[in-house]
Amino acid sequence: MFRPTLRSTTRILRGTTPTSFLNGRLAAYRFLSNEARSKIQTAVDSKPVVLFMKGTLDAPECGFSRAAAQILELQGVPHGKLQTYNVLQDPELRTSIKEFSEWPTIPQIYVNGEFVGGCDILLSMHQSGELETLLEDKGVIPKVEEPATTAPA
C-alpha cells in the first residue's frame, strides 16, 4: 500500500515549491506538519549518532548508505550510541527527513542532534580526520592521547 517509490517522493517534493518566488526552504518548512517535525526531532535526539539510511546496518540497500554505515563502523562508534532509521520502511519519514534537514538525499547523519551531512561529507570528513575529531569532541568515541602534541604537566 505504501510502496516507497522515488517517483512519488519527487512528486511530493515538487509540490512544495509551487511558485518561483517562494524560497524552497520556506516552502518546505510550511509543508512539514508540526507532528511530523516533532516526530523527527525525537528521532534525531534519540542517540548521540543518528543515521537515516536505506536498509539497515547489517543489510544496507544502497551503496551510499552502505558507505555511511561502514564509516561509522570504522570510527568505532559504539552500537549503543548509534541509532539508524530505515527510510525504505517508512515512506513518510523518507519524504519528511529531506524537508526537516533541508537536504535532498539519503543517507543523512546527525551527531548530538546536529546535522553533519550526507555520504560525500561524511566520507571527506572521515578522510581528513575531521570526523574523528568531531566524534571525540562530542564524547561519542574516546579521545586518543597524542604524546607529541600534549605536553606533560
Binding site: R14, T17, G24, R25, E102, W103, P104, F115, V116, G117, G118, D120, I121, S124, M125
Partner: peptide, 14 residues
C-alpha cells in the same frame, strides 16, 4: 563543506 553542498543542493533543487 556543508554550506557549499547546501548551495549546490539549492541551485540544483529541481
Amino acid at each position: 563543506t556543508l554550506q557549499r553542498h547546501r548551495l549546490i543542493n539549492d541551485a540544483l533543487k529541481d
